[in-house]
Design a protein around this nucleic acid. Structure first.
Length: 419
RNA sequence: GGAAGGGUCGCAUAGUUGGUCUAGUGCGUACGCCUGGAAAGCGUAUGUGGCAGCAAUGCUACCGCGGGUUCGAAUCCCGCCCCUUCCGCCA
């Protein structure tokens, strides 16, 4: 959410920013409602003031009569104000976070910019298989059984893949805890109220997220699309102390996505599934350090993939590809030999003070309070990381070598065919 | 799921026969005095949002959240959320 004040002072800028993200918002209506709101507030305050003074006087018929009058007037005006404010808030919630100044204005992925490459694409002297072929042959990925039990876009990880998952988790935790991140396993179900503030409904709502509820119940809970969704609100309605900043968390959780807008896309294997596990970073920092923190999160993501020795490129997203709350976003795309291209494996965004304003998360600085900047970044999206390992480390005999840094955690160096 | 108790301005607490609570006290924090320097002591200040104003400042809302009763509610009534204890169930 942007501050009304900011919109009032920069209406043209905000309009342009929304357009750059291809979002429809009626800024003029916001300004009109804001004016109406202030007129009403003025009237209401005057009446309340009179009421408060009246309540201090000796009670007589005049006091009671005037009091009743005020009560009636207030009831009407307050009702009107509530309606105006609700309308205003609904509109405000639809205004996207403007892209940062250094972000290219663009409409789709062709406008994204590759800012960095690590290693050359893996070369094989045999025809590389894709992750599902490898996984099925090694009996470590099973989507057909999952189809029977859960449907499409689900998978069983088995045998060495399970060990590999926990190795990745432990490796990431080790590095990030060492950097001062607080490890956390968050809830994966969150209240509706939280989804409102996180912008689930602007992001895609029921198209994107699962709703869990009792058969007869209308409220219920929502499954998180990423650990970020239950980690960021940890500090909702709090004022953090400057000495505790920055506050960084590394969370492990399953993530759930409906993927209802992606029929027919990436249907093979576990690249795009309804449920996957992820190690996720979240930072709360003072505004001055927001940009620096974004570089930092990206550097950590790179460090992790460099440790795995997997070729990748870093892509800086253009305005329309940022999504609703992000001001800047970098993806790491790992080389996927079977597709002969790079595919997204991590993503880091700064939401500047946009999320903080919605969730009311501030910090105190010499008596003053300010909204913090909130950033997030993927450490390992396990499924896709496993894909990148299987594909880049596959051998002519169908086996897969384990990246060296993970071996202390897996206890084996290679996944081979079962005899 | 059942029973009881509870949620107060950073933390801890006072305040429930409605008006003196626009919320008291202690701790913490900030500044000042004192001191060679510090501690202690003393003094002062110290919540968040909104509206008006160039500003000083004023007004207003907020005592878990949302409604209601009343001229007037932290205090009474209703619904919800959360916490604690006991019971039941349970990985």
């Amino acid at each position: 959410m942007l501050s009304l004040d900011y919109i009032r002072q920069n209406p043209t800028l905000v309009k342009a920013a929304a357009k750059n993200k291809n979002r429809q918002v009626d800024i003029d209506k916001i300004l009109k409602l804001d004016e109406k709101r202030r007129t009403l507030i003025l009237k209401i305050q005057k009446l309340r003031e009179e009421r408060n003074l009246l309540a201090k006087q000796k009670v007589d018929d005049n006091v009671i009569n005037r009091g009743k009058q005020i009560k009636e007037n207030l009831k009407m005006l307050e009702k009107e104000l509530t309606a105006v404010e609700q309308g205003l808030n609904n509109l405000l919630y639809e205004v996207p976070n403007p892209a940062a100044n250094d972000v290219a204005i663009g409409t789709d992925e062709t406008d994204n910019i590759v800012v960095k490459k690590y290693k050359e694409p893996t070369i094989f002297d045999f025809k590389p298989l894709d992750h599902l072929d490898i996984g099925e042959k090694l009996e470590i990925i099973d989507v057909s059984t999952a189809g029977k039990v859960s449907g499409t876009r689900f998978a069983y990880l088995k045998n060495e893949a399970v060990i590999l998952e926990f190795a990745l988790v432990q490796f990431a935790l080790k590095i990030l805890i060492n950097e001062g991140f607080i490890p956390v396993i968050p809830p994966v179900l969150i209240k509706k109220e939280i989804t409102d503030k996180l912008g689930y409904w602007q992001a895609g709502g029921n198209e994107d997220y699962y709703w869990v509820h009792e058969p007869q119940e209308s409220q219920g809970l929502y499954l998180v699309g990423t650990a970020e969704h239950s980690i960021v609100p940890m500090h909702m309605n709090e004022v953090l102390l400057e000495k505790d900043m920055p506050k960084r968390y590394v969370g492990f959780s399953s993530s759930f996505r409906r993927e209802s807008g992606s029929y027919g896309k990436d249907t093979r294997g576990i690249l795009r599934v309804h449920q996957f596990d992820k190690v996720e970073m979240v930072s709360f920092v003072i505004p001055e350090n927001g940009d620096k923190e974004h570089d930092y999160l990206l550097s950590l993501e790179e460090k992790l993939f460099q440790a795995l020795q997997i070729p990748y490129q870093v892509v800086k997203m253009c305005s329309e590809d940022l999504g609703f709350p992000a001001a800047r976003k970098y993806d790491i795309e790992a080389w996927i030999p079977s597709q002969n291209k790079y595919r997204e494996v991590t993503s880091t965004s700064t939401t500047t003070d946009f999320q903080a304003r919605r969730l009311n998360i501030k910090y105190r600085k010499k008596g003053e309070t300010q909204f913090v900047h909130i950033l997030n970044g993927t450490a390992f999206a396990i499924g896709r990381t496993i894909i990148s390992i299987l594909e880049n480390y596959q051998q002519p005999d169908g086996s897969v070598i384990i990246p060296e840094v993970l071996r202390p955690y897996t206890g084996f160096e290679k996944i081979a065919k079962k005899s």
